[in-house]
Design a protein around this nucleic acid. Structure first.
Lengths: 243, 243
DNA sequence: GTCATACATATGTCGTACATATGTATGATT
DNA sequence: AATCATACATATGTACGACATATGTATGAC
């Protein structure tokens, strides 16, 4: 055993090496979406490995959406969907609590920052959709309906931002968000009621009004107040107590 | 040919079906990180397919980080890294301009919303690190040094947020951010200078001071002003002109 | 009881053969 | 000559069988 150090990171599988080699090759040759890749056999021969190994490496790229392949057309570089890979893994059943709390927080952060984009795109925004949701909420009676309208309202804000990536990101994070919120709520039932003590609550109608007639600064501050319930949950002391 | 409709979405590959079947199985049986999976041969026999096909389906899960496998220990459910999959695909060379613009914007949104988390965790924040960066920046002479300090400052804000997921997200988005910004800058050289016309610029020192002695509201507004140059680039008219 | 050795086992790699779908060339029909 | 149907070639998809390799377990020597 001539182990220079405790474990020379020759821990890489053969397929791992092939994958890296391929990645480098694609970069170096400046492959772009639509470009055709060499055939599997050519790659296998060029790298001196079996087709099986090559295929497994290619399978990884295919899984990530970097390449696509069809029966006789061969393989081509694809335009990967950045969020799709994340989506397949965002399973509350698999993620640990810390990560989910951080994702929960991330969604709040995005929601806070979203206001400025909304004002940036105000001119072509369709406020009537938002208006409808607010009205529906005000007519709602059951708690379930109210919650549903709440979700709709915030989803619509994302939609109005005009940023499809952010919108998809929100949709994608929702299960985690709901999961964390449900968990936090049951650990701290009293918190839903004593919010009125410190600040005047900001309704969705308030936000809509500010969006239409106010300025970004007002909107930011109102949104913070509106989300304050959630932000409170993120207090480290509370977090420690709930874990 | 008994095609009921033009194309019954039997377009799924065999491996696709195996993958779905496995996914469902894992959900139904409530598999959790650490749990061992059946052996490849058992799965193959149970589903009536070859080990090759099973292995390709499993390879996808392995690629996504849902499972891990070692030589004799078999396979176990893993805790997937939500961002790792995204990272492997965030290649400016592969993504289209629209997506990259949206990611650029997303980073701004996060940066805007980050302030409130910073104030939430103020008490255990280490401002001296931020202080050092600001000082270094003020002593900097070359444009390159200044840019570097700028990046350092904002990175440090992420770090001080205490949210590791958001922090990693920022690191991950940086290449795209830089790529888009470089592109925007060269298309609109004049914009760097005429910022002083409308608003008084907010320096990093201002931000630091507000973070220490001010309140979230002030910080939000200052950060918006600080990032205004970037936000301006997102003006739809400018975006259309640059594409 | 500790250590070294041999064995069993599950994943990793390989080679080959065949299935399947897609593109291309061939040839018949009008 | 243009169009359509057919046959063929080709590259990926699937399958099977064999062996390599690493890890856990049992066996046995001292």
């Amino acid at each position: 055993m001539t182990l220079a150090k405790i474990r020379p990171i020759e821990n890489f599988s053969q397929v791992d090496k092939i994958e890296m080699s391929l990645q480098e090759y694609l970069r170096a040759e400046n492959f772009q979406p639509g470009d055709a890749l060499p055939k599997e056999m050519e790659l296998a021969e060029a790298m001196g490995v079996s087709r099986t190994a090559i295929r497994e490496a290619l399978s990884r790229f295919r899984t990530l959406g970097i390449i696509e392949s069809r029966k006789n057309r061969g393989m081509v570089i694809a335009k990967p969907d950045v969020l799709n890979n994340m989506e397949r893994v965002l399973d509350p059943q698999l993620l640990d609590d810390e990560t989910m709390n951080e994702i929960f927080e991330m969604r709040l952060v995005i929601e806070m920052g979203l206001g400025d984009v909304l004002f940036l795109r105000k001119h072509n925004a369709n406020f009537s959709l938002l208006e409808k949701i607010v009205e529906k909420e005000e007519r709602a009676t059951t708690q379930l309906d109210i919650v549903e309208c709440d979700i709709e309202f915030h989803s619509m804000l994302y939609k109005l931002s005009g940023n499809k990536t952010i919108m998809r990101f929100q949709k994608l994070l929702r299960p985690v968000f709901d999961h964390v919120y449900a968990k936090l709520s049951e650990n701290a039932e009293a918190y839903t009621d004593n919010t009125l003590n410190d600040v005047t609550p900001v309704t969705h109608r308030d936000l809509l009004h500010t969006l239409k007639y106010g300025n970004p600064e007002q909107f930011r501050n109102q949104m913070y107040t509106h989300l304050f319930d959630y932000f409170k949950e993120l207090n480290p002391a509370l977090r420690a107590a709930s874990s």
